[in-house]
């Protein structure tokens, strides 16, 4: 065991030093993407089978943290591709000038919204929604206003620290505009607590700490497919739902530009897309058949005006959230 330990301690940091016979593409992404249960391992196998290269995922935080990491590293970054930004961050990311234009427009896209962008390629998407236990709850609110009037308890994430939390703040802002602060005040007695990340609040919800938790419309599919549990459902809101589109981009400083282009094109192929539903529990961006459990999910409309958010509007929505709930 001791030998193993010493070996483990030494091979890990040194492995990146050893000579690589194949070119290496470095992709920065978030934790759950590369975990054993995420899409990472299958996508690595599939891409390596056709690229004659080594695909190396590097965990560098999710969403905004990923962007901060790239800014911190600047042009010295090892990253060739970043995978894990989303539509809420695109405008901010674009302004940094760190990314290179796409070599070719993505093929086969079938998103529920029109998509045209010369830098970012979408790789999956989902609607935010409140999830509930359908064996316990029967009277269901169908809007934020109705939710605020009800005495249902909810768990949400902090927009200052979490991607879905930020999405919720933008969702309410898009749906209610100047009335957003009133909605938040109305919701304040429904909110049990606000957590740092999705894992904490989802874990607390499963322990029975609240009636509803902020997650994705696809969450019930996980319980149905992986746990054969049909007891979770998503609430459908008449305002429309916030759509989170996760995107990838190629770094301007990449020293593997051709390989990076190849990977960007690979994102919208079936080999990549078919992995997404049952590992990332999100919708694919192309028109491929979905697993059975997905047909039972709600199919809401996207809320208008929350797709691409200028940086200043994002900050304003977060500040408004803090002020309304701090009163």
């Amino acid at each position: 065991m001791k030998k193993f330990l010493i070996a483990a301690a030494f091979t890990l940091p040194l492995s990146s030093l050893s000579a690589q016979p194949l070119p290496e593409l470095t992709v920065y992404t978030y934790d759950s993407f590369v975990s054993d249960w995420g899409p990472g391992p299958q996508i690595k196998t599939a891409f390596e089978a056709e690229c004659g290269c080594t695909l190396k995922f590097v965990v560098a935080g999710d969403g905004a943290a990923l962007l901060s990491r790239l800014r911190l590293e600047g042009a010295r970054s090892d990253a060739d591709v970043v995978l894990g930004l989303d539509n809420a961050l695109m405008e901010q990311a674009r302004d940094l000038g760190l990314f290179a234009p796409l070599a070719a427009a993505p093929q086969n896209l079938a998103l529920p919204v029109a998509w045209e962008d010369d830098i970012f390629v979408p790789y999956d998407w989902g609607y935010l929604a409140f999830i509930y236990d359908n064996t316990k709850l029967s009277e269901l609110p169908n809007s934020f206003a109705a939710l605020a009037d009800s005495d249902l308890s909810i768990l949400i994430q902090d927009p200052r620290a979490s991607t879905p939390g930020l999405g919720l703040a933008l969702w309410v802002k898009a749906a209610y505009g100047d009335g957003a602060a009133d909605i938040w005040q109305g919701l304040s007695d429904n909110i049990v607590t606000v957590t740092k990340g999705w894992s904490e609040s989802y874990g607390m919800f499963l322990e029975g700490e609240a009636d509803l938790v902020l997650s994705y419309t696809t969450s019930p599919a996980y319980h149905l497919i992986a746990e054969q549990d049909a007891g979770k459902s998503a609430l459908e809101f008449s305002e429309g739902h916030y759509m989170q589109i996760e995107v990838a981009a190629k770094l301007a400083s990449s020293d593997q530009a051709a390989l990076a282009d190849e990977f960007m094109a690979f994102i919208t192929t079936d080999a990549f897309q078919q992995v997404i539903p049952e590992t990332n529990w999100m919708y694919p961006v192309t028109d491929i058949p979905l697993p059975d459990g997905f047909s039972s999910l709600i199919q809401p409309d996207p809320v208008a005006g929350a797709l691409f958010i200028p940086d200043a509007a994002r900050k304003a929505a977060v500040d408004e959230w803090v002020r309304a709930l701090s009163r």
Partner: peptide
């Protein structure tokens, strides 16, 4: 302390300096 404070604090009224640091580093750079 910050993750604990946030999770049990019930909302943004229970924010700490550490959360502000986290926000400044992660979200605002």
């Amino acid at each position: 302390s910050f993750a604990v404070v946030l999770a049990l604090g019930g909302g943004p009224k229970a924010s700490t300096i550490e959360l502000a640091i986290y926000q400044a580093l992660r979200f605002e750079f």
